[in-house]
Write a protein that binds this DNA or RNA. Structure first.
Lengths: 230, 230, 230, 230
DNA sequence: CATGAATGAGACTTCATTCAT
DNA sequence: GATGAATGAAGTCTCATTCAT
């Protein structure tokens, strides 16, 4: 559910989300007539590269994907890759960011009009699982440990893991304020624990082909128990 | 224990365990002549290689550690590496197993005579944190995602992550039986969630230099809340 | 003295030399209306490119300077480079020619009204050293070995080295005719020796931060000794 | 005479000189039985690589010679190159050193029993020209400007140019002491001038196919005039 | 005429593994 | 059993040049 082969159905949603973002950018670029042609061409290349990168990073993982493969898959020259990304790592981080933005956008919808704390947790998890179902392997790939990416240690960029942990922390703070979550919880730590648990649990569920609904149910219950004010 | 898979009770505090075996060997050697000497030499090489591998895998990670480095660090010839390990991956898995065994042995002590469920969780976590303090980086390295290790996908071996998740599952089952943990918990899933949470939480705590005791306290509370029967 | 950072003082002289050529062109263009605008625009681009090329070839050397760098430094598009120069080598040779013309123009002034043979040598050297002081690195760059420039061997163009060696040969012939220089000297060979000596000596003086006046004095004496009729 | 096509006659002398040096090394290694086998194999590889490097650097120049070409020419694997040289530059410098040692050894013979200052100059030049005749292109290649070799500027190693300039400086000092050379000469500067002159003059003579004996004669005369005490 | 995105051959270097000694 | 020299496929990235806009 959270790993393995990329599907065809995937790309539609992906491209949609990406398009929306890019449309925004283009829209911002404004009414200019000339610049847009150039810009469009370059953006098109970048889009193709990023889509190819996503496919390959998901399918093969970071170390098994060569810039060359990405270029070929994207149907552009080898050099074009380096026109858009400083290096392989930058490309991976761009993929990772894209996935994060995409999931967050996805979740935002999921949470629309959700009232209770328990429902929110369930809907977020449901969103993640649905995203994982329609974008197989993307989350697993995007959550790749930063430590295996760079030679010199720190990357400097905020990886999705941290980003999402922070997101959870914000939510937990809100629930603490509303009295739904226990006031004694360290929300940042709890955020990290939850993200770690989701990552591991998702991988386990995918590997052993567990029933998604049951897992969702269970995880919801466990997280609620962990956080709920009593 | 001559080649291949590292052993069960063996690697106490690695070096200690090895010493014990060697003492055994030496004792045995008593009457023996040639064969034993050879065995000792081989074991000695393997021990040095494994110790070097651990140092380097911890310090630099899997991809940044080359068999040559391990051999040099161990003070043996490069070819010797392949007398003891089929390939680099096998060596890493041996390290990983060693660390798992070591931690389990460490935890076994920690749990001696612990009665209540809450105390058990606290003591296990305390054990993990203490082990991490005395063996910095080892757990993080040993928990390296299987997906970044091999080219062809599956490894076939049970990685520490799974192993420890199973361990937690067994404990949870026990606690369910004694009525301390909620009967409705899926212990295997919960085991994975906990391992993921510990991994992520530990990395977060280490990265941000959090106070270990506070983290320990918090994590204990959260896990207890998650599991406890009410 | 003969190397290092390009200065502002440089550009004035450069532009002057180039301007003279351009003025000719513009004058020729005469009454034309449209053509002139285009021509001016094109010349402007070429001038900017050449100035940028000089800065970069001096600062980084031939192999470390890419056409792209030159274009960016010149503030024109990358493609524009190839509108003005057949390839990178042609651009370098243009730079080299420009420097040669410039130095010759510079020296012509220096030699105005110099009578004796010894004074002439001293004034030429002084001119070279002054030029080097106000155009740091330009001569060193312009004297780059032809052999490191092209893949296929010969370049076909006369490089400054040869050009200047020929210049010295002409002078020496003159001095031979006037009885000041020894008649038995092979002036072409001597010209090359002198140019080689100046190049090497200048590099040495620059590298070791020698006192310019002393070096000038010494070199003058040595060359005079070498050539003088006795 | 000092450039262009490498010949067959070349290699014999080269290898001889190299062998002598290496025999010395091996001899030093002493009577050891075991180590020698290994050492011999490695030295053999290095010798083949260095011979290949010399051939290619001479024939094509530094920038047109790839490590890969050197390995193939030497009949060893690509990786072997990096077993012996840290990088391409290190290999070039090794070649350069070898040539310097070789020429110095060559010249030492030439100078045996030469008494007068004029004879010494003539014999040194004759030695250089003879070396150039039997090792075509080697000196021109070895005298490659340090500035075109490395990206970051300084190399740190003393190039043959400097080395030989220093050699001349020592000789000139000696001649000054014996009263043969003018006492007012700055020997270090003069050394550089002479090396530059020889380099340039040699290149000119080679390019224009001048008669070696005439050039030798002329250069001797000019240098003697330059240095002689009167 | 001007632009700058695109190109792809090819540069240098690394490293897991083998094999002669 | 031990050694370490040797291997060569593969990796990442550059850059002189072209060409669609």
């Amino acid at each position: 559910m959270m790993m393995e082969e990329p599907t065809s159905g995937t790309e539609k949603a992906t491209e949609m989300a990406v398009l929306e973002i890019e449309e925004g950018t283009i829209a911002e670029a404004g009414a200019g007539g000339l610049g847009n042609g150039v810009s469009r061409r370059k953006l098109e290349s970048r889009r193709k590269l990023l889509a190819a990168a996503r496919r390959l990073f998901v399918e093969r993982g970071y170390h098994e994907t060569r810039p060359q493969d990405i270029s070929r898959e994207a149907g552009v020259g080898h050099g074009t890759f380096y026109l858009h990304f400083e290096d392989k790592l930058a490309c991976f981080l761009a993929f990772t960011d894209e996935a994060a933005v995409e999931l967050e956008y996805f979740l935002a919808r999921q949470l629309d009009g959700v009232a209770s704390f328990e429902d929110a947790i369930r809907e977020i998890l449901r969103g993640i699982f649905e995203y994982s179902a329609t974008h197989p392997g993307v989350l697993a790939a995007a959550l790749t440990d930063a430590s295996v990416l760079s030679k010199g240690g720190d990357i400097g960029k905020k990886m999705p893991t941290t980003r999402w942990a922070d997101g959870w922390a914000v939510l937990i703070e809100k629930w603490k304020a509303s009295g739904e979550a226990s006031p004694e919880i360290d929300s940042r730590l709890a955020g990290h624990l939850i993200v770690g648990a989701i990552k591991q649990g998702g991988a386990y569920a995918a590997r052993d082909h567990l029933d998604v609904d049951k897992v969702l149910d269970h995880m919801t219950k466990l997280f609620v128990r962990m956080l709920k004010n009593r």
